[in-house]
Amino acid sequence: MDWLQVVILAVFQGLTEFLPISSSAHLILVPRLTGWEDQGLAFDVALHLGSLAAVVAYFREELMRMARAWWASFSAADVDRDARLAWWVVLATVPVCIVGLLFRDDIALGMRSPLLIAATLIGFGLLLAYADWGHRGERSEYQLSLRDALFIGFAQALALIPGTSRSGITITAALLLGLSREASARFSFLLSIPVILLAGGLETVGLIQQPQYIDWLSLTLGTLLSGISAYLCIHYFLAFIRRIGMQPFVVYRLALGGWLLWLYWV
């Protein structure tokens, strides 16, 4: 890979991992539209590592409280709100793990069509608009119930379809349940930690089984840029949606989906 490819893919991954516009769609479309060769499994692992480091660093204080409370919950008579939130993150991750393990190869090989990506960008973009306009409430992530967490977890499983957007569909589900915009995004970001960790683990296993030449300089730069862009994205996204909402991302999804339909169908 040349340096321009490294920089563009790393920044795209860092930004789109947490924006509701689908990172998988962009990482499929960018090489296809530019004619670049596939970046390889090692580089994908590096980019995910950067995104994971960013979200852990940003929520480090909350994660420490949640981890301590979760561990204490095994012996405590009463479960506090941090322990409960930690349990909801764990349980909401189960559906995507099951679906991913059962249908991973089918998704990886059969769902990379630009027309499918266009349909999911538009369809789930409209659903995000509906949730943001009509169902947004003022509940926080600490007010989620087990039923709420499972609803968001099953919604997250849909993100295995390229173009859906993991952050987009989980934020949509949380908004439909009456969470505020910021609480919806925060729970979505917390959910990303086990998902990225597990996905990165699977990719690492694949990398070990199919060794390839590793350009360590490109991997290091990609990890660094992905982490920086992801951290900035989380910070500014939370401030942005508090004031403006999800509509700019809806417009972007509709525009990108419409352009793909025109490019590959018309």
Rank of each mutant, 00 (worst) to 15 (best):
I107W: 05
L85P: 02
M111Y: 05
A92Q: 09
L127W: 10
G125H: 11
C97Q: 14
V89P: 00
G125M: 07
V96M: 01
A118I: 12
L121M: 15
I122M: 04
W87D: 06
R84G: 06
A119R: 01
P95L: 07
A108W: 11
P95Y: 02
A129L: 15
L109E: 11
R81S: 13
C97E: 04
W133R: 15
G100C: 11
L109D: 10
A72L: 15
F124M: 13
P95G: 11
W88T: 04
A72F: 03
L127H: 12
T93Q: 02
P95A: 04
D78L: 07
L128H: 05
I117K: 00
T93L: 04
A118D: 04
W133G: 11
A77D: 12
V96T: 12
R104K: 13
S73L: 10
R112E: 02
A72E: 08
T93N: 15
D82W: 11
A108K: 14
P95W: 10
D106N: 13
F74N: 09
R112D: 04
A83V: 02
L121A: 10
I107S: 06
V89T: 01
V90L: 12
A119N: 03
V99Y: 01
G123Q: 00
L91E: 09
V94F: 10
V94R: 04
L126F: 15
A129Y: 15
A108C: 12
S113V: 00
L102M: 14
D78N: 08
G134L: 14
F74C: 06
T93D: 05
G125V: 08
T120Q: 01
I117G: 00
G125S: 09
P114A: 09
L101I: 14
A119H: 08
I122W: 01
H135P: 03
D80E: 03
A108Y: 14
A131W: 07
W71A: 12
G110N: 12
I98L: 14
V99A: 03
F124D: 06
L127N: 10
A77P: 11
V96R: 00
L115F: 05
L128F: 03
A86Q: 01
V94M: 09
D105S: 12
S73R: 07
F103L: 09
A118F: 01
I98S: 12
A108L: 15
A72T: 09
I117C: 08
A92M: 02
C97M: 14
V94G: 11
D132M: 10
L127R: 04
L109Q: 07
L101C: 09
R112T: 06
L127I: 13
R81D: 15
S113N: 06
D105C: 07
L85R: 03
P95F: 05
L102Y: 03
F74I: 04
V89C: 06
W88L: 12
V90R: 11
F124R: 04
W71C: 14
D80A: 09
I122H: 00
